[in-house]
C-alpha cells in the first residue's frame, strides 16, 4: 500500500466504511445460509451478499481507484451490472429446480403447480 499514503483522509474513511459494510453484509448472508433450516429460507440469505454486499465493495473500489489515479475509473460498474442481471436467473432456476424435485418426491409443504392441467408426477 505504498501509493495509498497520499490518499486524503475523507476518501480513506469512506472507502473503509463501504468495504466494512459490504463485507459484513456478505458475512451475515453466508452465516444465514449456514444457519437457516429450510432450503426455501436459505435461498434468501445470499441475496444480502449479492445486493449491497457487492454494491458496497464495488463502490469502495471505484472510489479508491478514481481518487488514486485522479480520473474516473468506472469499470466496476460492469461487475455490478453483471451480478444484478445474473443473480435473479440463478436463484430463480435453483428455486424452480428445488420445487420440481420436491413435487416429484411428493414432499409436504410445497404448493401445487400453478397450472393444474398437468400433474407434476407425469412430467418427463
Amino acid at each position: 500500500m505504498s501509493e495509498a499514503a497520499d490518499l486524503p483522509l475523507w476518501a480513506a474513511l469512506l472507502v473503509s466504511a463501504l468495504v466494512l459494510v459490504g463485507a459484513g453484509l456478505t458475512l451475515i448472508g453466508s452465516y444465514g445460509l449456514l444457519r437457516l433450516e429450510r432450503f426455501y429460507d436459505r435461498i434468501h440469505a445470499p441475496t444480502l451478499g449479492s445486493s449491497w454486499g457487492t454494491g458496497g465493495i464495488l463502490v469502495a473500489s471505484m472510489l479508491l481507484f478514481s481518487v488514486l489515479q485522479t480520473r474516473p475509473v468506472l469499470h466496476e460498474i460492469l461487475i455490478a451490472l453483471f451480478v444484478t442481471v445474473t443473480t435473479p436467473v440463478t436463484l430463480m432456476l435453483l428455486a424452480r429446480a428445488a420445487l420440481y424435485r420436491d413435487r416429484t418426491e411428493g414432499n409436504a409443504d410445497v404448493p401445487p403447480m400453478l397450472s393444474k392441467d398437468v400433474p407434476p408426477t407425469q412430467n418427463p
Binding site: 434468501h44 441475496t47 449479492s50 445486493s51 435473479p88 430463480m92 428455486a95
Partner: peptide
C-alpha cells in the same frame, strides 16, 4: 429477486 426477503419461484 434482488430484494432480500422475496424470491420469485
Amino acid at each position: 429477486t434482488a430484494t432480500p426477503g422475496t424470491a420469485w419461484v
